[in-house]
Nucleic acid binder design. Structure first.
Length: 481
RNA sequence: GGCCCCUUGGUCAAGUGGCCUAAGACACCGCCCUUUCACGGCGGUAACAGGAGUUCGAGUCUCCUAGGGGUCACCA
């Protein structure tokens, strides 16, 4: 059997939709699983939609998540060029071959004429379908139009009756009535091929064995197959992939600001978690593993595990997975990821090892870091009601007593560090016969000025250092006096 | 609207005619641990869209209905 070859063929819109990324991922995983090739092809035949820098974004994103291509615009390959606009001259001869064999014809109808016919059809409550008007032009009429320099498109001549079937590896056999198929434009008036045409020519020329693409092409696939048949080419295997939804009726969309890969990275998600999560959205490995490296994904991937129905993107689960990845980061890596957010919270020159220790098990996405730790750089005003806590058996009066007794002990501490603070405070609680919480609650409140903090009184004191800690404790005491 | 596709807890999903009194995960709730909040551990709530049929037996096969998605461009 021939080497498996798949491709990712984005049109450069300047935006990497998470669904497209998943399509690229699946095509990559399948190729690599089969020891095949994965290629990148840029589909930029719509001159009206070109976006500056969009191709670079595709390269960057793919590289970022660890998807590499064996052939592509930037690295070349045996079947280049890999940018459709650069292949423009290559399509016309194929179209002309189709005209000769009767599978296509030149159409001189203007957009205005077509628009009028379309409106008329709609007025009658019918679905518009091109009436093959120009197919019936005789040779002389066509030549005259050509001589007159009339612009034209080339249309596919689709049979008016009968049915066409094909097999999709996920959906099985699909049959459609030819009568529902329109005579699609193959070559536009500007000489550029449409997707419908370029896609078939390129997939064949680039020896793509498995066409993996979104479900939106499911209904038009028979038309592409007619083209393959007209050329006498082998039809590739098809794998149509379901969509990722925002909720039960809407696709994840650009409008909602949470549909692109970069949106998630900017929100503080790790790329490994994003890839891992989307891999699991619409595919399952057949066992209960949920956490995968790229290598493990390649190893576990199979078409059989892909689901037919679309999946709703659940950010909750992404968060959970992201938290898993965060927890296994080394202290250095955690700090590297977090530093940007520490800066936002105004934190600098603090013990990063200690910060990591208290934050790593608590943070699920990095962007939630600043509000968790901003109290370290800036103590905001707080109410003495925070000193009330039933479970710790404390209230403002008790707290005042604790602070009165502990501040001198802390002031005399020879070394201001986690262990010495721990020994001093726990020793005090034991000596006084108090609950740990009773001693630590008022200290933590004074140090942080808020009811909920990452880490406890001892860690916070260690982070703040002697001077700032004592200043805050004194302030707490004065609030209670 | 025509055509194509889809439908198991709130979400992702396992399930390929008897092992389903329907797995697992996220979320949610409770308990334990505990120095607040987390982490961790233990437990709980919660689903075969509806209806006919085929069969000794249906989440699994068939048909119908409903709901949803896609498509019907000189976009891809």
């Amino acid at each position: 059997m021939d080497k498996i070859r798949t491709r990712f063929a984005p049109s450069p819109t300047g935006y990497m939709h998470i669904g497209n990324l998943r399509s690229a991922l699946y095509a990559y995983l399948y190729a690599k699983k089969c020891n095949g090739d994965f290629l990148l092809r840029v589909e930029d035949t719509d001159s009206g939609r070109l976006v500056e820098g969009a191709v670079d974004l595709v390269y960057r994103t793919l590289k970022d998540v660890g998807i590499s291509w064996d052939e592509g615009p930037d690295i070349g390959g045996a079947y280049g060029p890999y940018i459709q606009s650069e292949r423009k001259s290559l399509y016309m001869p194929y179209a002309e071959q189709l005209i000769k064999s009767g599978h296509a014809y030149r159409c001189f109808c203007t957009k205005e004429e077509l628009e009028k016919k379309r409106e008329e059809a709609m007025g009658r409550g019918e679905t518009f379908k091109y009436d093959k008007h120009c197919m019936y032009l005789n040779k002389n009429e066509v030549q005259a139009n050509l001589n007159a320099g009339m612009p034209y498109v080339i249309r596919q001549n689709v049979p008016v009756d009968g049915t066409t079937s094909f097999t999709d590896m996920i959906f099985g056999t699909i049959t459609v009535d030819n009568s529902t198929l329109d005579d699609n434009v193959l070559i536009k008036a500007d000489g550029m091929p449409t997707y419908n045409f370029a896609n078939v020519i390129d997939d064949h020329l680039m020896k793509i064995t498995h066409v993996m693409r979104g479900m939106e092409y499911l209904a038009s696939t028979p038309k592409y197959n007619m083209l393959y048949d007209a050329f006498g080419w082998d039809i590739p295997k098809y794998i149509h992939m379901s969509n990722i939804m925002r909720d039960d009726r809407h696709k994840l969309s650009k409008r909602d600001g949470d549909a692109s890969y970069e949106d998630f990275i900017n929100k503080g998600y790790m790329k490994e978690a994003v890839v891992n999560y989307i891999a699991l959205l619409g595919w399952n490995p057949g066992d209960e593993r949920e956490k995968f490296t790229m290598e493990e994904l390649i190893d576990a991937f199979s078409i059989e595990g892909m689901s037919k129905s679309s999946a709703i993107f659940d950010e909750n689960k992404l968060r959970w997975l992201n938290a898993l990845y965060i927890r296994e980061l080394s202290e250095e890596a955690f700090t590297k990821h977090a530093s940007k957010y520490y800066m936002k919270a105004g934190i600098s020159n603090m013990n990063t090892a200690l910060l990591c220790k208290i934050l790593q098990p608590r943070v699920e996405i990095f962007s939630e870091l600043p509000p968790m730790v901003d109290f370290l750089s800036q103590l905001s005003d707080y109410s003495t009601e925070l000193f009330i806590n039933k479970k710790s058996k404390t209230d403002p009066a008790v707290s005042k007593g604790i602070l009165l007794k502990t501040i001198p002990i802390l002031r005399e501490l020879p070394v201001w560090a986690e262990t010495s603070l721990h020994n001093a405070l726990m020793g005090f609680a034991e000596k006084e016969g108090l609950k740990n919480g009773t001693v630590l609650w008022p200290i933590r409140i004074s140090l942080a000025g808020k009811a909920v903090t990452p880490g406890g009184a001892i860690e916070i004191a260690a982070l703040l250092g002697r001077d700032e800690s004592l200043r805050r404790l004194d302030l707490g005491l004065s609030k209670l006096s």
